[in-house]
Every structure is written in C-alpha cells, then in structure tokens.
Design a protein around this nucleic acid. Structure first.
Lengths: 202, 202
DNA sequence: TTGACCGCCTACCGATCGGTCGGTAGAGTA
DNA sequence: TACTCTACCGACCGATCGGTAGGCGGTCAA
C-alpha cells in the first residue's frame, strides 16, 4: 500500500480493483481475476500490494480521499450552508451517473466493516461523514437549519440516495421505458424537496 | 430446495444460513462453516439442499415470503392507506431490532442480484415491493396521498431506513453514549415526519 | 564493472473451496 | 423376511484460493 514510483501498474490495479470489488465484493473477487484483467502476473500484483487486503484498503482510501475532498471543495466554494447542502445533493446525483462503482463499494464496506473493523480498527469514510455532519451543525448554529440530529439526517439522506441507486438495476424492469428515463431526475428533485422540508428553516 | 418431511435439520440450516450469509455474504460463507455450525456433515447439508445456491435461494425465499406476508397483513388490518403506511414504518423499525439479519441480506442481495439475475431470472422481493407501491397508488387514487412517484418514494423510504440500520455498527462510535440510545427512536420519528410531509395530503 | 534495486515473471505451496461417491443405520411396508 | 426410502456420514475429488520463492532483464549510482 506504500506509494509506488512507477504509477502506471499500481494505479491501473486500483482502478480495475475498484470496479471488480464493486461488482463482486471482496470475497467474490480473486487476485487472479484482478491480475488477469490488466494482463499481469498474479505475483506482480502482490509485488505492488503485499496482500489482497492491502489492495482493497488502497481502493477504499482512494475513494474516501476523493469524496472527502469533494465535500471540502463544496464547503470552500459556497459561503452559506444552504447552498452547500443543495450542492452536495447535486454532487451525489451526478457522481452516481459518472462513477457508478462508488455506491456499491461503500455499501459493501458498510456491510463488511463490522467484521473487518476488529483487525483494521479504522473507518476510511470518517472524514467524509464528519465533513457532512459539520455542514449541518454549522447551519444549525447559524440558525438556518432546523434542529434535526445531524447524523441521522445525513444517514437518511445518503441512504435514500444510495439505496435507490443500487436498486435500479434490479427494479428498473418495473418502470415503463419512458418513465424510467425520468427516474433519476425525479429522484434528484425528491431529495431536494426532502432537504428543503426537513432541514431548511422557513 | 424441495420441502423436506423432517423439518428440523433443513430449517435449522436455513436459520443458521440466514445469519451467516447476512454477516459474511454468499462468497464469504462456506458450506463447511454452515454444516459445522449445526454440527452435521457437509454432505448432509448437500443432501437437503443440492447446492450452496439452493440453500441461499431458500433463505431469500423464506425472508421474502415473511416480509410480503407482513405487508399484506398490514393492508388487511387497516382500512385506510394513511394508517397502512405509518404502520409499515412502525413495522420496519420494529423488525430491524428483532430481526437484524434481514436488512443485511436484502442489501447484499441487491448488490449481487444484477450478476446473479442472469442465471436466476427472478427477484424474490418483487411481491414485497409491489405490495408497497400498491399502497401508495391506492392512496393516491383515493386522494389522500400526494402525486409522488410510488417507486421512488418507496425506495427512498426503505433506503433511508436500511442504510441507517446497517451503518449503525460502524458509526455508533461517533455518538455520545446517552445520545446513541435515542438514535433509533429519533430515526423512527424522522421517518414518520418524512412520510407526513412528502406523502400525506393536508 | 560491479552490485543493489526494481518491475515482472514462472513455478509452486498448503489450505480450502463446492461437490461427488459409496455406504450405514433405522423406520415403514409388503 | 426382504425391500425401499430417508437422513446422515467419512473419504475423496479437481479446482481455485491467497501467498511464497527464486530468477531474469533493465536502470543507475558507486
């Protein structure tokens, strides 16, 4: 998991690992699959990342760092918490289209983490989570947000979004074709209404 | 997967499989683990359920049947859709405390289903999902619910709940001890407010 | 020129995977 | 008694798992 000097192979590995772990999970993905996918030997993979767990950790770290950075960027770009939170909803919806693996990996990690946590003793997404609850807390102390529990609100917001996203491949068969194209747009609008009604003070 | 005459062993298997699959996922659980857990030989497990997939399918089917039945019971017990939907929220929250494995397995199944779907070509939770959207549609045609998309609303509601539940083991370290005891109660209240504001016509 | 290091390889390891096989004990039935 | 069926078992299978050992060619500093 140490930074490598020649980035090409290690970065390619993280990239392919992100998509395979997202699709099939940690135990469903073998390091043979991963190595074959970018046409290197399995032992070359292990040369870069000493163990399978390390590679998985590198994937999580990269993901968590990106996401934390995005939240910070939103905080920096907009001065008031109202704009920040709506911008974040926008970000969520955009990223689910551009980077569909993310939600899968995050969900899988939440499911597996309690077991893994005994060894790892850390949660990669802590800064991301704290960044988000901080926006809520800040908005509350400035009097623009209602006094909801920041943690519960964020978890429900993330959940409403991520669950829908990972359900879509399965449930899309139940939408009419022309309705389905509207779903992501309507979902986005619903999330915004949720934020407006449950969080924003009138 | 055929029904067995001597229920004891097969049912014990489904029971232990439900908790192990929930905890470690399909690929993370071996049939040796499962057999050992109830002290029978691995070949005896395969005598009852011809393959590991069959056993997993039996677990899903039992779960889906129970949940579909619960929704139907709510529909039957209460005449109007407003009471039905609040009763369902109550049901969700109660079951997450009584049957904590459920949410895990459902989430894992949603994540793995797109891959599995090629073979299985069926989704065990379809009746459950349809039952819920039917409540919304019925309430809408009776004029007591707002014209939201039934599918999106249900997915967001389920998501807000299930995501929070599976996150709790990981994020509970960020709650104060005395606050944490309130979380499930506050979460329940928030879900009800969400339903009241986004669904119920005033 | 040498030697340390690097990225990558083939060959191999023991452990474990899902699943098969032949067989046994016991209950039911004719 | 003889036959059948069910639940269960230990022994075994080929395949695959994560990981190790050692070697090869190239780069670069001493």
């Amino acid at each position: 998991m140490k930074p490598q000097k020649t980035p090409a192979t290690a970065e390619k590995l993280i990239e392919i690992a992100e998509s395979l772990f997202a699709e099939k999970g940690f135990y469903g993905t073998s390091i043979r699959d991963l190595a074959d996918s970018i046409a290197i030997a399995k032992s070359s993979l292990l040369h870069h990342f000493h163990t399978k767990e390390n590679l998985y950790g590198a994937v999580l770290k990269k993901l968590a760092d990106e996401m934390t950075e995005e939240v910070k960027a939103v905080q920096k770009q907009f001065p008031n918490e109202k704009k920040q939170i709506f911008e974040f909803v926008q970000l969520l919806c955009n990223n689910s289209e551009k980077k569909p693996n993310r939600e899968n990996i995050i969900l899988r990690e939440l499911l597996d983490n309690p077991k893994r946590a005994e060894k790892a003793k850390k949660w990669f997404f802590i800064d991301y989570f704290k960044g988000l609850t901080d926006i809520i807390k800040s908005g509350q102390s400035n009097g623009v947000f209602k006094p909801v529990s920041p943690e519960i609100f964020i978890l429900q917001l993330l959940g409403a979004h991520r669950y829908l996203i990972i359900s879509l491949p399965t449930v899309k068969q139940f939408f009419d074709e022309k309705i389905y194209r509207q779903v992501l747009k309507d979902h986005h609008a619903e999330l915004e209404t949720f934020v407006r009604e449950r969080l924003i003070k009138k």
